[in-house]
Design a protein around this nucleic acid. Structure first.
Lengths: 210, 210, 210, 210
DNA sequence: GATGAATGAGCGTTCATTCAT
DNA sequence: GATGAATGAACGCTCATTCAT
């Protein structure tokens, strides 16, 4: 019976959502430190003081922030359990790239800037349900794919799952950063297929059975 | 004999170093934006105004920090022309990692934030002498190593030098960003040797002659 | 019935007035650039930050001062349509002088400094409603008085309205500047009546009918 | 025998001149408060500290500053004693206008900004030799012309010399300021001859003898 | 006499936070 | 619950001035 909310409580929830919405939008645009409480509340169409009805300190809003729609993909991989391991990884990598390209370079840059620390994000959680950073989440996603590969016999038991997931993830993040730093020249010139052939397959090859 | 410095000039150089030292230390501890000029100068045991004798804006100290200490390595590789290609690349990668670790995570984060665009940096130039971004410079450095490998017969002519240098560089940058995003857990746990074995060697193997 | 102000709004208006009052006083005493925001707010008995609740920049208070108090007179003349032409001009001139004296020399100096260019000012507009500079506005005011004089037969049709309004205005502005440059000695010693007799009447005389 | 200067003293005098020269130039361009001691000394090609060898405070330099070449004309009038009084005044006014037009509007604006106070300027002095402001000097020049007119019988003894010189000067300064405030539109449209006819002659007429 | 490194008070401005309404 | 006026510490930065060399 937790659903009986007074009208006031409903309104309060709405207000809270409005604040979070504006905060998310502005922080995505300009970064946390460059957005003032004033700005957030003005964008939300609320009085400045109202912020402190819902959050004790400005920082608190960060913890409540979901990741942006940008950059949410790990599910796609889990959704295709039947394919072979390399195909699944390739798919993952390709989706990853599409995902960041979809948002555009400026958004990607901002995302990196905002996520350079290991900050847990509401809406992203590990197996236990405790919120973790997007980076860690991605590592775990790759880890899961590889571990599943081992369990299903597509990869030999000696596969260094930990290291490989980390390295593959680093490569992906590295391509992302290269994309930003080269003003977009990199990823365009290097089709992801090339990456799969040149790197992914080579790295995994030693761990194919037989 | 351009070394004739008056005692005052020597003292000034020392002051400059003191400031840079304090700045590096504090920025490494707390991040650029969280350190005030006051703090730096107090740490350095100097008056606040003195900062502006040496730097025009607070930001300038960052650029100086990046250029002088953090992240300058490409020479090390050129300096060891006789070794075999994989050893040289390994060395390069190891130095790269040492380099960024030396500066500390906050400095590295700051560097990334400041270099997410393809901005040419004073003090970094390509073969023609025109200034380029650090990112491009690193790509070219790797490219040169690989091209030299092809020329000297250590790699077969069909080696996709362009793509490989790009991918290896992306891996390095990816490890750098992973290092920041995992609050330092990544690179510590993965010895660079592991990276060389698991990735570098595998990627290059198909292009070894014979 | 737009007058319904909450108590808070009234208090805010009062605060605003307090700030403007202190600013006016101090600027009149010491000149704009020699008064700091701190000083103004201390004089007003308010916290420094409160200044920026009411004004975006220190300069804004000047513009407000100029618009609200110092130097707004043209209406006075329009309000006395029935009098004869010389009396009206005399009145205008006298009010002009009172107006600038009321603000004090430093404020007047500051006003001149800020208005040496032909910059349109918010709150001042010509017949069409487009904003114009205070200088132009004054010229037009005099022009209107003289033109009205011609229309009503107090001045002959051949009156060079354009030139005269310009010259009379120049004389007024000249007295203003003389007042500043002589540290106030000028206008005090020369009663405006004297100006009217010695200059105004003489200049207009040829254009009286009959 | 005050001429025996050691070489050092000569050099010092030169240094002093260099400083004053740079100060004059820069202050004319930007106004006293907007020029820093640093700027002056850099322009002079001297070390910053040297300023204080010659001046105790920054302000002291102001007192030593000559007026700029802009706006020095009163002599021209004295040089033509034989003409009739109105012709001489007309000439004076015309020269005055030419003088300010020659410098251009920006310089004129700057000059006004810098001379809004009654600051005595080295190089300008009254009959006693004590330095006075440019404004006062001009008043006295006009006063002298009129007084000479009275003495020579061109004007009747009852001529209110004091008031007239002040008013005529105000008109000139008024035209100057009008010129600036109208972005140059005023004086161009109104030939000075017009001013002489419409104002000057009318004002003086009552004091012509006979 | 000339220098320029060092200084610190002071500037205009921002902004997270409080609290009476 | 919502508000916005009030606050004051802190910021980056300027600059007249001092003084050891």
């Amino acid at each position: 019976m937790e659903k009986k909310l007074t009208r006031r409580q409903v309104a309060a929830q709405e207000t809270r959502k409005k604040i979070l919405g504006s905060a998310r939008k502005l922080i995505a645009q300009k970064g946390f430190e460059m957005v003032s409480v004033d700005e957030i509340m003005e964008d939300a169409g609320l009085g400045k003081g109202t912020f402190y009805t819902y959050f004790r300190r400005k920082e608190d809003v960060l913890q409540e922030l979901n990741q942006t729609d940008f950059f949410r993909l790990a599910e796609t991989v889990n959704a295709m359990a039947e394919q072979d391991i390399v195909a699944r990884l390739e798919h993952y990598c390709r989706e990853f790239m599409k995902c960041i390209e979809r948002g555009g370079i400026p958004l990607c840059r901002q995302w990196i800037r905002n996520n350079l620390s290991d900050i847990a994000m509401a809406g992203i959680a590990d197996a236990d349900g405790s919120p973790i950073s997007k980076y860690r989440y991605d590592c775990q996603a790759l880890h899961a794919v590889l571990a599943e590969g081992v369990r299903s016999g597509l990869l030999i038991p000696a596969t260094p799952v930990e290291d490989l997931s980390l390295l593959i993830n680093a490569e992906l993040y590295g391509l992302m950063i290269a994309w930003c730093m080269s003003d977009g020249r990199v990823v365009g010139s290097l089709e992801t297929g090339r990456f799969a052939d040149l790197v992914l397959r080579r790295i995994l090859e030693p761990y194919f059975p037989g």
